[in-house]
Each structure stands twice: as C-alpha cells, then as structure tokens.
C-alpha cells in the first residue's frame, strides 16, 4: 500500500529525514517511536502533503502512484488520512458543514452521488457514537474552544467518517488522560480491518497497550534504525533510546 524508499527531506534549510525506508501493507498497524527531533512528525507531514517540506531524494509510492506528486486533497481523497498532532481551530466553519463538504467532495471525486441531508446525518450519528460525542458537537466550529481531549477525539471522528485506507496518527495520544485515550483507542480499533492500515506515531508505549501494533519502528536522526514487534516498544519504555544510539555510534566491525 505504502512504500517509502530512501526518503530525504529538508525543512527550513535543515535535513530531517536522511534516507528513510518504510513499507506498509493492508491490514497492518505500525508504530513509529523515537526521540524528539528524530523526524517522526516530519514523516507525517510529508505524507499528508505539507508544502514547506522539501523532498530532496527518494520516493513515496501509495497504491502504485507517486504520492509526492499529489495535492493534499488528492491524497485525502485517495484514502490517506493524517490525524494532526495540533489540530487547528477554525472559527466560523461548523463541524457539520466541514464533514459534509469533505465527504461529498471525496464522493464526487470517486464518481459517487453526494449524500443527502438524511443520509449524511444518519452516517454522522453512527460515527459520533464511536468517539462518544453528542450531536451538539456538529454545530460547533472546528476545534474552537475544544479541550485537548476533544480535539483528538475529533480527529478520530473525522477518520471514522472519511474511512481512510491509510491513517497516520501523529501523537494522537499525547496529552490525553486515560479516559480520552481509551475512547481514541477504541475508535481506532473499531476502524481496523484487513483492508486498511494505521501508522501510529507516538512517544509512549502506553498507547500500544490499547492499540496493539504488528510492527514497532524506531526513528532516530532521520532513519529507521530498528524494527521489531510489540516487545520492542516495551524494551524502549524500559530502557529508553540510549542503547540504540550507542549501538549506532559503535564502530563498525567487519
């Protein structure tokens, strides 16, 4: 589904990703961990299509297409979803108008008919249940005055509505209390299927108790330096990242 080869990315003059390789297949859940500044959020931003990130080398293929050539909205319509680390507040745009426009634009792009008001609200109601939010939420402006937890639940709600094939969650667990974390995780688990895939970017092993990954990767200094199964996350939680960086710095012996 997603194939990243030797990706090098620069932002504001400094190279953040330095030859990253990463593969995702349908049905998989990947966790990407690593110290601050390693390039985790940069990876998420590049995949979503932020313009200020310059790709110097490498390729990103998504379902056989060159993802880097696509505009952010084209990526979203093709099924790529980024749950933002810091969702922006947009006063004056209601959640219902936002979701209706997004949903119907995507349907139009796929050659499907737009949902009418009845169908739309039926769908929305069902999805609100997943994140345990009530209908009042729909008349509010996007993220305006939302608590940290509500913003993250809103990201998961949007994901539930848009049903992406590839969802990248950028530190969706950061700053969440245990109840919110549980709601967010349940939301993600509800959406898991053999056809879609998740990439969870996180600092904390805690999230992985709720969403069990198939693979755990460690991103340090612009590269994935270690991959493993969920036990790797436990080891990182226990020992930190130092043992990994030491391993890297150690002289190479032949």
């Amino acid at each position: 589904m997603l194939s990243i080869k030797n990706l090098e990315v620069e932002v504001a003059g400094s190279r953040i990703l330095k030859g990253l390789n990463f593969e995702v297949k349908p049905g998989e859940v990947h966790a990407i961990m690593g110290p601050n500044g390693g390039g985790k959020s940069t990876l998420a931003s590049v995949l979503a299509g932020r313009e200020e990130y310059e790709v110097l080398a490498g390729s990103v293929e998504y379902n056989g297409k060159d993802l880097l050539e696509m505009a952010p909205e084209e990526r979203a319509r093709a099924g790529v979803f980024l749950a933002f680390q810091y969702p922006v507040e947009i006063p004056g745009v209601s959640m219902s108008n936002f979701m209706k426009t997004a949903l119907n634009d995507a349907r139009e792009a796929r050659g499907e008919a737009a949902l009418d008001a009845m169908e739309f609200f039926a769908l929305i109601r069902e999805k609100l249940k997943i994140v345990n939010m009530n209908e009042k939420f729909l008349s509010r402006s996007i993220n305006q005055g939302f608590s940290g937890g509500e913003k993250k639940r809103n990201e998961v709600f949007q994901m539930a509505v848009l049903q992406p094939q590839l969802a990248i969650l950028d530190e969706t667990d950061s700053g969440l209390d245990i109840d919110a974390l549980r709601i967010v995780s349940t939301g993600v688990n509800t959406l898991r299927s053999k056809d879609n895939a998740f990439v969870l970017i996180t600092h904390y092993q805690r999230l992985l108790n709720y969403i069990v990954p198939d693979f755990v990767h460690v991103l340090v200094d612009g590269k994935i330096v270690k991959s493993g199964d969920k036990s790797l996350a436990l080891k990182l939680e226990d020992q930190g990242y130092d043992w990994l960086t030491d391993e890297l710095d150690a002289p190479v012996t032949i």
Partner: peptide, 24 residues
C-alpha cells in the same frame, strides 16, 4: 491545509475560510 488534508479542494477550502471570516 487542515481543510485540504480532509479532501476539500484548495478553492473550496479558501471559500469556506472567507465565509468563516464574515460568519459573525
């Protein structure tokens, strides 16, 4: 960018934000 990242065209996203500006 947030609106576009949800599949809304750049043009429509711009229109929505202009509308939002005068919403009050």
């Amino acid at each position: 960018f947030y609106l576009r990242a949800r599949g809304i065209s750049e043009e429509m996203a711009g229109a929505m934000l202009r509308h939002a500006f005068v919403a009050d």
